[in-house]
Design a protein around this nucleic acid. Structure first.
Length: 735
DNA sequence: GAAGTGATGTTTTTT
DNA sequence: ACATCACTTC
């Protein structure tokens, strides 16, 4: 933000022909099919910049993303082109932008505007509580299964009421021995409602309902947002697309919408994402003159890498036809490392990294080690430490998921919304204040039978004298916190609460290494709140202040119209801010580290050198994916995503045996290895040495001794062609 | 109400 | 291997 004056250089010159067409086709529905490394983000941001340069108001543009990180990046890049007003584009995640709208419109759907957002842990805990209270068998009613089934209901617009009318789903439940699912679902929804809480799916679902039932409200937003953009469209679920259509499809709408996606990079089907949305989109908007642009040139990777990716993905059954190409030259061949054990895999990958660092002068941050499951990170960490290479592991337990952090946040949440049952459960007896399980169960049961929040029960129901006094004490304390929160900034209140709740004292008792770590985490949380209070980031979306002219209800929490407008330093504002945050977002710490992460987390990133590890059957592809052909296709897309992260160097590794679930197991190399033509592989690659029968889609025709002596199989592809997995004689190595 | 013991089930996870 | 959790025992 050095120059407030918009730069006048012609940003459109930085786009190729198709990219420019996609960026400048503003009116009417647009679909951009964007291969990996094809400059998708560039098109999106320049498109928005172009709109603003042509005189549109930034706050009339809504750009929906999946991560806070990509929203932030998009805003930064827009701002670079058009100046500070780029900040005022409504760019954010589905969840965060919809939460903002819902806070303003909460009254219409019977929610308080300071509603709590339940994270996955809260959701699971509500489900568990319901299962327990209903005395249901915990094996037949697995909390995680129930939770994801509820999520999938919401994602497919099935309310509890509709659920009982769905014969197919009720039959499913009967067959799966969980006939009471619909009751759990119904109770779950009711309980969130009475707790003044929304789970992640509610942030979408409630908005859909709002739009469904309140045409006047819907119209207001249709008028406000004149242009709608959706990034990573292949990862949207049915509900998300339905909301998008609510915004854009109505009588007389100009249907100014642009979605960007790549069906080949859809890797979240297990969470309800469906590429059907892309196909539906095409059909839904065909009558309205949809324009489709395919970005097929890859600017990221060299040819061996791009072609290998193309070959792999060609084994999938359904896809939008496109040919990704690169003009970066052949580049290095792909190297394959075979190891005996997982530990040896760690060593050989580390060796290869050292070699690359020496030979090509790669910095640590240009290198990534990717794996299918987070559990695989350990051996790599060990070897990185052994060679003294700086590394950073992503994923795993996030800061906000740590027990002590959640405990303090639960107190903060309770100070803002006493209806929040999950927060109350969490802290009512922590630190210990003699309110035990029996009492809590009684409170919960009473709350349930009267359909009221547990907090109300505390003050209204009879308890034995000792319990009564403990509860009164707790109630008085929370009321005190709540009062404090009304008149002080978030940091002052949080420090006060951390001390007065007894949480700090409790943690100070524990002098073990872990205990000290926990206290540290509380300190960093408090530091984070301090930063929030001191930071003068103006996050105004042009809603309610000067620009939009729309009449909005003021936010009762802060008295300011926009819940997140300038300078709201209240605790409520802070909680709203962090509810949808994940670690990845504030990992701003720059440094020269080798990146260790799951393939899923690597999506959208790129590295000069990439190691894809654990390429064995049962692991990658995962044993969980074998039931269905769709499952395998998704694993293959995942492999495709992994390959296409690499710019110049790609190394694939597998181990003949590894420790898994405490036992040593052997698995043949991944079928995916065989799907890459040998022409792209380094001559030293130990491919096709599998001893067990391959479980791939192709039949094994004959076993052949390859020119280099490795024993391989000839594959018969779906098109019936036989394909030898090694290059013709003479097609030697690159070096 | 706490602390100890044995059985159990393991992917990925933007929000 | 490891964490979680139901259940026992004090």
């Amino acid at each position: 933000m050095t120059s407030p004056v918009p730069q006048q250089r012609n940003y459109l010159d930085e786009l190729n022909n198709i990219q420019r067409q996609a960026a400048t086709q503003i009116d009417g529905p647009v679909l951009v099919v964007a291969g990996p490394g094809s400059g998708k983000t560039r098109v999106l941001t320049y498109r928005i910049a172009h709109m603003i340069q042509s005189g549109m108001a930034p706050w009339e543009i809504m750009a929906l993303t999946f991560t806070n990180k990509s929203a932030k990046e998009m805003k930064e890049r827009i701002t670079k082109v058009v100046g500070p007003r780029g900040e005022r584009v409504w760019a954010g995640t589905f969840h965060s932008l919809f939460a903002k709208i819902l806070r303003v419109e909460a009254e219409h759907i019977g929610y308080p505007s300071n509603f709590t957002i339940y994270d996955s842990d809260d959701t699971k805990s509500v489900v568990t509580a319901i299962i327990n209270e209903m005395n249901l068998n915990k094996e037949q009613y697995n909390a995680n299964t129930i939770k994801s089934r509820i999520s999938s209901c919401k994602s497919n617009l099935i309310t509890p009421k509709m659920y009982v009318t769905r014969a197919d789903m009720m039959e499913d439940d009967k067959a799966a021995k969980r006939p009471f699912f619909h009751q759990i679902y119904e109770k779950y929804v009711a309980r969130c409602k009475r707790s003044g809480a929304m789970d992640f799916d509610d942030l979408l679902f409630r908005l859909y309902e709002l739009f469904q039932n309140h045409p006047a409200v819907t119209n207001k937003y249709r008028q406000k947002f004149k242009y709608l953009m959706v990034d990573e469209f292949q990862d949207t679920n049915h509900l998300q697309y339905s909301i998008v259509k609510k915004f854009i499809s109505y009588e007389g709408s100009p249907r100014n919408i642009c979605v960007v996606g790549d069906d080949a990079q859809s890797i979240y089907a297990f969470r309800g994402a469906t590429i059907q949305n892309i196909l539906d989109y095409e059909n839904d908007f065909k009558p309205h003159g949809i324009r489709i642009f395919k970005l097929e040139q890859n600017y990221r990777s060299t040819e061996h890498i791009v072609q290998a990716a193309n070959e792999v993905i060609s084994f999938n059954r359904n896809q939008i036809q496109k040919t990704i190409f690169s003009d970066k030259g052949e580049g290095q061949r792909i190297r394959v490392i075979r190891a005996i054990t997982d530990s040896e895999e760690g060593k050989r990958v580390a060796d290869a990294i050292m070699e690359q660092k020496n030979r090509w002068h790669l910095a640590n941050k240009e290198i990534a080690i990717l794996y299918r499951t987070n559990a695989q990170s350990r051996v790599f960490e060990e070897w990185m430490r052994h060679y003294n290479v700086q590394y950073r592991v992503y994923g795993g337990m996030s800061f906000y998921q740590r027990k002590e952090v959640k405990d303090l946040i639960a107190y903060l949440r309770l100070a803002i919304n006493q209806q929040d049952d999950e927060a109350l459960r969490r802290v009512i007896n922590y630190p210990k204040r003699a309110i035990g399980g029996t009492t809590i169960d009684k409170i919960a049961a009473t709350a349930d039978s009267h359909s009221m929040p547990m907090w109300k029960v505390l003050t209204q129901v009879d308890f034995p004298a000792r319990t009564r006094s403990a509860i009164d004490h707790f109630v008085a304390m929370i009321k005190d916190f709540s009062e404090k929160a009304k008149s002080h900034d978030a940091h002052v209140v949080a420090e006060y609460i951390a001390r007065r709740s007894g949480l700090m004292d409790e943690l100070k008792q524990d002098t073990t290494v872990e205990g000290i770590q926990r206290l540290d985490n509380i300190t960093s949380l408090l530091d984070g709140i301090k930063t929030f209070v001191e930071n003068d980031v103006v996050e105004d979306f042009g809603f309610g202040i000067a620009d939009s002219g729309l009449e909005d209800a003021p936010n009762p929490q802060s008295g300011i119209r926009n819940p997140e407008s300038a300078m709201d330093k209240s605790l409520a504002a802070y909680l709203q801010n962090i509810a949808l945050m994940t670690d990845q977002d504030d990992q701003t710490k720059e440094g020269d580290y080798v990146t260790l992460m799951s393939v899923h987390s690597a999506k959208g990133l790129e590295f000069k050198s990439v190691f894809i590890t654990g390429l064995e059957e049962q692991l990658f592809p995962s044993f969980m994916s074998f039931d269905t052909p769709e499952g395998l296709d998704e694993e293959r897309r995942l492999f495709y995503v992994a390959i296409t992260r690499a710019e110049q160097f790609l190394t694939l590794s597998y181990a003949a045996s590894r420790y898994r679930f405490g036992q040593e197991r052997s698995n043949p190399p991944s079928r995916f290895l065989d799907e890459i033509n040998m022409a792209h592989l380094d001559a030293s690659s130990p491919i096709g040495s599998r001893s067990a029968a391959p479980a791939g889609k192709f039949e094994r025709a004959h076993a052949h001794a390859a020119p280099d002596g490795w024993f391989r199989t000839i594959k018969k592809r779906r098109d019936g062609q036989l394909q030898a997995p090694w290059p013709a004689a003479g097609g030697g190595a690159a070096h």
